[in-house]
Design a protein around this nucleic acid. Structure first.
Length: 270
DNA sequence: CTCCTATCCTGCGAGC
DNA sequence: TGCTCGCAGGATAGGA
């Protein structure tokens, strides 16, 4: 489901729902594991503590309490929603309850998501090796050039690697490369400086515009408050196989890179 | 090292 | 209609 814009939209929604009330002692774990085991004992440390803020690092959400951070990753199908006791759905795995009645439910049909606990996010194994956020200066020409040196992976796969930059997934990689005019399959060591600059700008632009639109809703993604995103209506290449390019009317091609569907215009992207 | 594939899961839509 | 197949927003392990 979620790339950076969707996770950021969820984060904002969660923060709006939170009222600085303490977590109460009826955390409901419907199962002990998702992709990995859930550290239920550690998460129970939240009980009695307020959640002061919800942060985002890449595609991870971090619920900040005075004693540590609940970490959640939405994987492909994870979601958070405010739900009362009567609103129970299949694949509801975890409920975070607050004094005052707010109940936040984590649902994840495919269970590729993650629930974890971090005393200190800076040294947490899942977070410590993540690359830069796309909107910071670290995500720049110098870094990309040096990481790309001597490597032949397709530029799209490279952009989707969290060590390179966080938050860019399958949709936005295709969309950004279209805007940058670079073919997704281009070996990364053959991307020129000017193209890197265009790619950096395009990644930022497409993520920013999508956040503004509340993310992309395909299939069933909604934010924490239940609202759809709108960015899917402005896709220029993603999921537009054999439709016409919005710039030159060439038919959009679908290919497979790294096992993932990839979309590009063979005339606009070289 | 880098790379590429398979894999973890369920659900849904297309096509027969 | 009901079935099978392929594919889906992520990320990593492990073999080549």
């Amino acid at each position: 489901m979620p790339e950076l814009p969707e996770v950021e939209t969820v984060r904002r929604g969660l923060e709006r729902l939170l009222k600085d009330q303490p977590v109460v002692d009826d955390l409901a774990f419907a199962r002990r594991d998702l992709r990995d085991p859930i550290p239920t004992r550690q998460i129970r440390r939240m009980i009695g503590q307020p959640v002061h803020a919800v942060h985002r690092r890449g595609k991870y959400l971090l619920f900040e309490t005075p004693v540590g951070f609940l970490i959640s990753h939405l994987g492909m199908t994870g979601s958070w929603r405010a739900a009362d006791l009567s609103d129970v759905r299949p694949h509801d795995h975890f409920t975070l309850s607050f004094a005052g009645g707010l109940r936040l439910v984590f649902r994840d049909p495919r269970r590729f998501g993650i629930l974890d606990w971090a005393q200190d996010p800076a040294v947490h194994p899942r977070l410590k090796d993540l690359g830069p956020e796309p909107f910071v200066d670290d995500f720049g020409l110098e870094r990309l050039r040096s990481m790309a040196k001597g490597r032949i992976v397709p530029v799209k796969n490279f952009l989707m690697t969290p060590v390179v930059v966080v938050g860019v997934g399958n949709i936005y990689a295709s969309e950004a490369l279209f805007r940058a005019g670079v073919k997704p399959s281009r070996p990364v060591n053959r991307v020129k400086d000017g193209e890197w600059e265009r790619i950096i700008a395009a990644v930022r632009e497409v993520l920013f515009e999508s956040i503004e639109a509340g993310g992309s809703s395909i299939s069933d993604y909604v934010n924490a408050e239940g609202a759809d995103g709108m960015f899917q209506t402005t896709f220029r290449v993603y999921d537009r196989e054999s439709q016409t390019c919005v710039v030159c009317t060439t038919r959009i091609k679908r290919t497979v890179l790294g096992g993932r569907s990839t979309f590009h215009c063979s005339k606009c992207q070289r």
